[in-house]
Design a binder for these strands. Sequence first.
DNA 1: AAATAAAATTGTAATAATTACAATCTTGAA
DNA 2: TTCAAGATTGTAATTATTACAATTTTATTT
Lengths: 141, 141
Amino acid sequence: MNTVDYLQHHDIKPSVQRLAIMDYLQSHCTHPTVDEIFTALSPQMPTLSRTTVYNTLKLFVQMDVARMLTIDENNIHYDGCTTPHSHFHCKRCGKILDISHLPCPISDLSPEGLVIDEVHLYYKGVCPACRESGKSDIEQE
Amino acid sequence: MNTVDYLQHHDIKPSVQRLAIMDYLQSHCTHPTVDEIFTALSPQMPTLSRTTVYNTLKLFVQMDVARMLTIDENNIHYDGCTTPHSHFHCKRCGKILDISHLPCPISDLSPEGLVIDEVHLYYKGVCPACRESGKSDIEQE
DNA sequence: AAATAAAATTGTAATAATTACAATCTTGAA
DNA sequence: TTCAAGATTGTAATTATTACAATTTTATTT
């Protein structure tokens, strides 16, 4: 499905800005921040406003076509992939990687009377690349 | 073990401020924010500085006697309990509850070459209390 | 006990992410 | 074409956090 249809199927009007942001999210699985998206799209869309990126991502999350990742305490990251999966956050390079591992079924929770809308699972540590390069300490981005 | 010994066993000098903050964390399992801790302790410690609360919590996390929770995108919360457990974040009242559910063993991850230091698992939804009271929409705190 | 050094705390100022908001622009319907 | 609703923009305001220099506390040496 193309991006126009994808947004429309989720009751989102496919403006030029929204299309560009969704395309960026889906073609860059790097879980970008607002600023990364803004910086990447600015050259081709010189009139783009940071506020629009904020508004659009908020809308995307509301309409369930993006997920907000609060894994990194310094910046909120966004994920255009909405199928359940987990993440790995490298403390050295700061990258957030997708991994497939998911928790056990949550049926054993329902006795507590909780209504569960979202499941978030992630790990923190050191990624293979950083481990190889042997950088000694934390120095993100 | 008392709080003085607890901090000393983790190579943390038990200053008055640090003791007060650790005591607060351990006696209030509400996963408070910096501001909640500062506001709660200020009356008894009028000279306490917000910066000290920030510094102290950073130290506690480094020394492994507290965990930083980035579940709530608006504020960082802190947890004085360091044994593995999961959380539930109510989207209505904003409370973070402890729950015991944990993911399956992570041994199936090691093939990917990741070094894992921390596991974070939490759920978002509506807590029993908010469900009962039937408040219609999101209105945190 | 006095002098000194190291560590911790404090308060203010700076930084940076996010939001509020009013003005402008775009789109689609009447 | 006119109009209204919605989307975008840019600036200003807000807020959490950090930087930093000054002060205070604590521990150590003489």
